[in-house]
């Protein structure tokens, strides 16, 4: 267990610097974009110079960039994410409201792509070069090449508009006052399409990595040894070949988590899912710097935590990892 603890400690120290760079970098990037929150706001309202000045003052935009950055960092030090300009509500509240939705969406999509992808990968990799291997590889590549929003729209047209099996969007039936199990079932129904749209695209990656790893593993001596011992083929495939091919898949899982967040921006808009991705898009359009920073910060923490978990899983799956650090 000390191995894991050392890893954890090192990662935490490193993470703080990563977060600081992420926050300052995003702040500067957003400041460099032309127009501020007031410019974005008056698109819808118009207004005279007095009103515009008043708004800039009330929203703190008449202060210099440096002052605002310093204020933001100072508040952050007190774990205060500040107030959203576009929503005029505390950012912590807004993010907490949206975070569970995105987590469910991402989690289910990841589970789908990882689970189905690796299962199909094992199926394909059990007999590399066979017909089923070829057809699965080509099919998954085709899916990977499809843009997420398009896949989403096609799913909507087929399953929500034509067949009417599933709802078109949202996270639950609006204003339905459902509770408990009924509500959970309702949310699950609403998640089928967005999760499929998001998950199917990344499925190909897992499938191909699994398959490639297995094709590689088949040529290893231990497989020959296992065969020589007369193990059943099924056991060789699962316990020897597939297990060895699993490691790069776990690495991919960590990397994918960041990409999933990016993909959710599009999917959440198409399916009107009230999650963080859509919020991020609104924050950029509204030049809501503090809100966007809050979202980026939470996303960064999320990615760091997932990667940490991945590393821990790695250490568990592969005894060689971290062994040299144990004494450090």
């Amino acid at each position: 267990m000390t191995r894991a603890l050392t890893l954890l400690r090192r990662r935490l120290v490193g993470s703080i610097f990563v977060l600081l760079i992420v926050v300052i970098g995003s702040f500067l990037l957003l400041e460099a974009a032309p127009g501020d929150a007031v410019d974005a706001y008056i698109v819808a309202t118009g207004g005279d110079p007095g009103m515009i000045e008043l708004l800039r003052h009330r929203w703190g935009l008449d202060q210099s960039e440096l002052t605002r950055l310093a204020n933001y960092l100072w508040a952050l030090l007190h774990l205060d994410l500040g107030q959203s300009v576009a929503f005029s509500r505390p950012i912590r509240e807004i993010i907490l409201e949206r975070l569970p939705t995105t987590l469910i969406l991402m989690g289910s999509a990841t589970a789908l792509s990882f689970g189905l992808g690796s299962a199909l990968g094992i199926y394909a990799g059990a007999r590399p070069g066979s017909f089923r291997d070829r057809s699965l590889s080509i099919g998954s590549l085709a899916l990977y090449a499809v843009p997420g929003f398009w896949l989403g729209l096609v799913l909507i047209v087929v399953f929500a508009v034509d067949l009417r099996w599933l709802p078109i969007g949202g996270i639950e039936t609006i204003a339905s006052a459902k509770t408990g199990l009924a509500r959970a079932a309702d949310i699950a129904t609403h998640l089928v399409l967005p999760v499929s749209a998001l998950g199917f695209i990344y499925l190909a990656l897992y499938l191909r990595i699994m398959r490639a790893g297995m094709a590689e593993a088949w040529r290893q001596d231990f497989v020959l040894a296992a065969r020589a011992r007369g193990l059943r083929r099924r056991r060789i495939v699962l316990a020897h070949v597939a297990r060895n091919a699993l490691l790069p898949l776990v690495t991919m899982l960590g990397l994918q988590s960041a990409q999933m967040l990016g993909g959710s921006v599009v999917i959440e808009s198409v399916f009107a899912v009230p999650g963080l991705g859509r919020l991020a898009q609104e924050a950029v359009a509204g030049r809501d710097t503090p809100l966007l920073l809050g979202i980026i910060l939470v996303s960064a923490v999320l990615v760091i935590v997932i990667n940490l978990l991945v590393d821990l899983a790695y250490a568990f799956l592969d005894p060689r990892v971290g062994a040299s650090e144990a004494g450090a």
């Binding site: 709802p167 078109i168 198409v270 009107a272 009230p274």
Partner: peptide
């Protein structure tokens, strides 16, 4: 009256067709 937030412009047409 319920206002359902549909940010994507294509989804309003689909939601009408699906009678949502």
């Amino acid at each position: 009256i319920v206002y359902q937030v549909l940010p994507d412009r294509t989804s309003a047409a689909a939601a009408l067709e699906a009678e949502e």
